[in-house]
């Protein structure tokens, strides 16, 4: 009896297609993604007294710190905006990007014991990280809006502009940038651990190359410094966010398209490399 090739449900071969994300399979495992998100969320604050309040306390403390250090001591410009709001807008957006990036880039190492025992689409892990971080970001964003309301009632010079409607797009750009770069790095770290060591301070340094603690307008138009900061694809996202919700900031369609394009390139590149690595990473991790 010979079975024809087409009747097999699964064929395991050494080479895989150049670009095959198993997206259909990932959809089949959507419950797993949901449960991973739930797990991340539920376990994060088990056995803590303040629980989910930590989600708000963290950016609040960071904001206060920046207000004291950069706002008061260093006296950096905040584009005339209330310092608290200015820093908080930068902090929560940067926090979303950096947490996604740091966690997804550790995908293979953090889950090596699970990956070594059972198969499921490996992308489920970075996807679930991006989603659970998104949930946190949503909560922090609500907190930010509460602050916004407080300042607005106290006659601060802030206004919501039309660009606020770009908010979903901004989140999407951040998500694909972090996910793309994250899975790219996670694929590299399976063999070369050096990259993982670079991550922690690399992300911190990148924060200072992004307009988190200063506005883009503080750089001279056309200066190399400004170009360098603009070359960072996260800069337009944060600037647009500030422009949308606080009314001042540098907005340009060109900058934002550049951001979106680099996000797309990162996610495609990341997907290709991740796809190459995910099959055999257990042998090297």
């Amino acid at each position: 009896m010979e079975t024809s090739n087409s009747s097999w449900d699964l064929i395991i071969k050494p080479q895989s297609k150049w670009f095959d994300l198993h997206l259909r399979e990932l959809w089949k495992y959507r419950d797993l993604v949901y449960l991973f998100v739930k797990r991340d969320f539920v376990t994060l604050y088990k056995q803590t007294i303040l629980g989910p309040a930590w989600l708000i306390i963290n950016p609040l403390i960071a904001t206060l710190m920046y207000t004291v250090v950069f706002g008061n001591i260093a006296g950096l410009s905040t584009d005339g905006l209330p310092q608290m709001l200015f820093y908080m807008a930068g902090t929560i957006t940067w926090e979303y990007f950096s947490q996604c990036l740091l966690n997804t880039s550790a995908t293979f190492q953090a889950n090596a014991n699970i990956f070594g025992k059972v198969y499921f689409p490996r992308l489920a892990i970075p996807f679930s990280i991006t989603l659970s971080q998104l949930l946190k970001f949503a909560l922090q964003f609500l907190f930010f809006m509460a602050f916004w309301l407080y300042f607005s009632l106290n006659n601060a010079e802030i206004s919501i502009t039309w660009a606020a409607s770009l908010f979903p797009l901004l989140v999407l750009i951040m998500a694909i940038q972090a996910l793309g770069l994250g899975i790219l790095i996670s694929a590299l770290t399976t063999k070369y651990r050096d990259v993982q060591n670079l991550m922690t301070f690399g992300v911190r340094m990148a924060m200072y190359a992004t307009t988190v603690v200063y506005p883009l307008s503080s750089m001279l138009e056309g200066s190399t410094k400004r170009l360098f900061i603009l070359a960072n694809p996260m800069t337009p996202v944060i600037e647009t966010f500030r422009f949308g919700f606080l009314g001042t900031g540098t907005f340009s369609w060109i900058h934002l398209s550049y951001s979106a394009a680099s996000g797309l390139i990162l996610i495609i590149l990341g997907a290709i490399v991740f796809n190459r690595v995910e099959k055999n990473f257990m042998d090297t991790v």
Binding site: S7, W8, D9, L10, I11, V118, K279, F281
Partner: peptide, 25 residues
């Protein structure tokens, strides 16, 4: 490990019909 797709083969082929579940642990 190869049958349960935890790692990939160097050469050769495995063909499977139906849903496969593995319990390595």
């Amino acid at each position: 490990k190869l049958l349960s797709r935890v790692t990939g083969p160097s050469t050769g082929k495995i063909s499977i019909k139906g849903r496969i579940s593995s319990l390595l642990e």
